[in-house]
């Protein structure tokens, strides 16, 4: 038997207890520091550069001696960066939940069909209805994501739920949505189609404080909820029989976890479109760093997701400036080779 150096947290007053891998606190701290650094750099870099120290002072409300910094940082770049961060956090966490629930390493928000409904709604609004304001698109896509997930759940329900049926029904429905999207892309006006492609790739371009405020409550509720449910996810990811044997109320807990993943995905999709790859990669990298115990895995995947999207947005803004690449493009274009490198290394050690 391998003895793992567990770290047990059991507060005397509170009726909760945690047991995490000893690597977790250190990894979390490092990831957090790197992410904060990336955030500061993200805000500082651009057509009008701001020094890192000035960025921190401005965000904290201290004067920097340059009054335009406040406009640049607090009005233009900070909200955009925050949206990127919250989107990454949501996608990383949702991806980890879904991979644990379905026990499939390829599961990500897209595969459950959550984002396909949103995509269908968004492309319809952009290509068929046309000239729809961004706020309407964001509300409608959120609704679309929830509707299609509800539909998937109803269709997969047969005297009980089953992760396998959920995944397969999700695949079926999302390929139908993809077909309808493909009709519009093939026959729509070319300019609208290009706009729709940008949305489908995922971009945080033009994000304002209102997006931040609409994302924040969901994140505040559902990310901690996910971490609280980590122990059940551990049980569930061992298989249904084991989970039942361990006394987990399977249906309720699985339902809660699913709702969490759906809510996080739907809000991120509404704010930034369908950013791929983050929900797939962040959990994999996290698993390499802290092992597969979910109470350590979920927060790590969340923070890594944040880091990936913030960096991707930075690269997308700067690499071909003044042309801006949507950050969903960069997450895959940069993230994929990086992930391959990680896998390669893993195999040679």
């Amino acid at each position: 038997m391998i003895t793992r150096p567990w770290l047990v947290v059991r507060p005397r007053r509170l009726p909760i207890s945690f047991r995490v891998d000893r690597r977790v606190p250190l990894v979390l701290l490092c990831a957090l520091l790197v992410t904060l650094a990336a955030m500061v750099i993200n805000i500082g870099v651009g057509e009008y550069p701001v020094a890192p120290l000035d960025v921190i002072r401005t965000v904290l409300g201290l004067p920097t001696g340059n009054p335009t910094d406040v406009l640049i940082v607090n009005t233009l770049r900070l909200p955009r960066m925050l949206v990127a961060a919250l989107v990454g956090l949501g996608l990383g966490t949702a991806g980890a939940i879904l991979q644990g629930l379905t026990r499939n390493p390829l599961a990500e928000p897209a595969i459950l069909g959550i984002s396909s409904g949103a995509g269908l709604v968004a492309v319809t609004l952009i290509v068929v209805v046309r000239n729809v304001p961004a706020s309407v698109i964001s509300v409608s896509t959120f609704t679309g994501a929830l509707l299609i997930t509800g539909l998937i759940y109803v269709l997969a329900w047969r005297g009980g739920d089953s992760p396998i049926r959920l995944v397969l029904v999700g695949v079926g429905l999302s390929s139908m949505a993809a077909a309808l999207i493909s009709v519009m892309i093939t026959f729509g006006d070319i300019n609208d189609v290009q706009r729709a492609l940008v949305w489908l790739t995922g971009s945080v371009y033009g994000s304002t404080w209102s997006e931040v405020w609409s994302l924040l409550p969901w994140t505040i509720v559902f990310v901690p909820l996910a971490i609280l449910l980590a122990r059940d996810l551990n049980a569930l990811s061992l298989g249904e029989e084991v989970a039942r044997g361990l006394g987990s109320k399977i249906m309720l807990r699985r339902g809660l976890l699913l709702v969490t993943a759906v809510a996080l995905t739907a809000t991120t999709v509404a704010a930034a479109g369908t950013i791929g790859f983050v929900g797939l990669v962040a959990p994999h990298v996290a698993r390499r760093l802290v092992g597969s115990d979910q109470s350590g895995l979920l927060p790590t995947a969340g923070i890594l997701g944040t880091l990936i999207v913030v960096l991707a947005d930075l690269v997308g803004r700067t690499i071909f400036a003044p042309i801006e690449l949507p950050c969903g493009l960069v997450t895959a274009a940069i993230g994929a080779p990086f992930f391959l490198f990680l896998l390669y290394q893993q195999r040679h050690t």
Partner: peptide, 14 residues
């Protein structure tokens, strides 16, 4: 499977 998924994401994005 994992290598394929990564490549798919990369190629789609390009």
């Amino acid at each position: 499977t994992v290598a394929g998924a990564i490549f798919t994401a990369l190629l789609t994005s390009l």
